[in-house]
Simulated assay, not measured.
Amino acid sequence: MSSPYAKELEIAQLAVQRAAILTKRVFHEKAKGTVSKDDKSPVTIGDFGAQALIIAALKANFPADEIVAEEEAAQLRDDAPLRQTIWDLVSTTQLSDAAAESALGGAIKDEDEMLTMIDHGASKGGAKGRIWAIDPIDGTKGFLRGGQYAVCLALMVDGDVKVGVLGCPNLPVDDAAPLTGSMESGQTDEGKGCLFSGVLGQGATSRPLTTGSLAPEKKIAMKAITDIAAATFCESVEAGHSAHGDQAEIAKKLGITNPSVRMDSQAKYASIARGAGDIYLRLPVSATYQEKIWDHAAGDLIVREAGGAVTDIHGKRLDFSIGRTLANNKGVVAAPVGGHPQVLAVVQEVLSLK
């Protein structure tokens, strides 16, 4: 525990793993036949429950730290049945994960405390101090269809990401498993579930998700691109999240013939970090849209620690110091360090044609 951020890493891993357990329970118990994110949807239940568990762990161990998170508890204060449903999940998940509870401390004691924990996520972010960014369920539609989603947590210190953890319950445990379109639906739990981690300057790792203590970790690294035409690239499932047409044109100009793999969430960052894919493109679909920091902080660090480069379409590093959004950036281009300049050049060429 002597390396920098060792305690933060351990708490983050255990907290994300426990939150991932809750989301899997929500999917299996609540998500059958659900296709929307209405107020009582499994996503709503899972979002609130996972956020409460993660924040409770952070506040027990790092009480002075600020937290930027997606949800707030006002809706639950006005909806007793929904609040009770979420509390039942939170309380039983805490009881069932004794190993994490012992290490994390700070068990949530009742519904009121659960609401208080959720509302601790209201920090405005910024360039000063220690700030955690949480996305309790990144990839709403992936979660609902049994495809890819992620539980995301990152620590920023003075605006710089120092620790990142991604829980990806539906990615294959095998780091060498190739990316396929079938990863986006019809998942079973067999052979699935990974926890990815990175600490600035210390590399990136993966380990299987468990329901107890942390499993042994393995170092991960991006594949070096020797032939860009043989690369595989990831993109968002939703056309509203990323410009599919531009991305197809970029792939064509790079000579890439492999079909793109579309998946939701920061599972894309995790997939290229361990070499299952090569390039992740998220190109702007709107001149005014600003990405949320919780959608990128953990994945950005993990890819960079695995030997990748992550920039926006202008070649600038992602800037997490502005607030709750990446206001200084447009889009994301992630690739191995050696291939990133070539990919970025083609991205800029295609986008400048408009």
Rank of each mutant, 00 (worst) to 15 (best):
K7R: 15
A20S: 15
R25D: 15
K37W: 02
D38W: 11
K40D: 13
S41F: 07
G49S: 08
A57L: 06
N61V: 06
N61H: 07
F62G: 09
F62Q: 08
P63R: 11
E70D: 13
P81E: 06
L82T: 06
D88A: 14
T93C: 05
S96T: 12
D97L: 07
S102P: 00
G105Y: 09
G106K: 07
K109I: 13
K109Q: 15
E113M: 12
H120C: 15
K124L: 12
A127V: 04
A133I: 00
P136D: 11
D138I: 07
T140L: 10
D175V: 14
L179Y: 01
E184V: 06
G191R: 11
G193L: 04
F196A: 07
S197K: 02
S197W: 00
G203V: 11
A204S: 14
T210C: 04
L214F: 04
L214S: 09
P216T: 04
M222I: 05
I228E: 00
I228T: 13
F233C: 02
E238H: 11
Q247M: 15
A248S: 14
I250K: 06
I256W: 01
S260W: 00
A267M: 05
T288M: 07
H296T: 12
L301I: 06
I302D: 04
R304I: 00
G308P: 00
R317N: 14
G331C: 11
A335L: 05
G338D: 13
G338L: 02
G339T: 01
A345H: 03
L351T: 08
S352K: 15
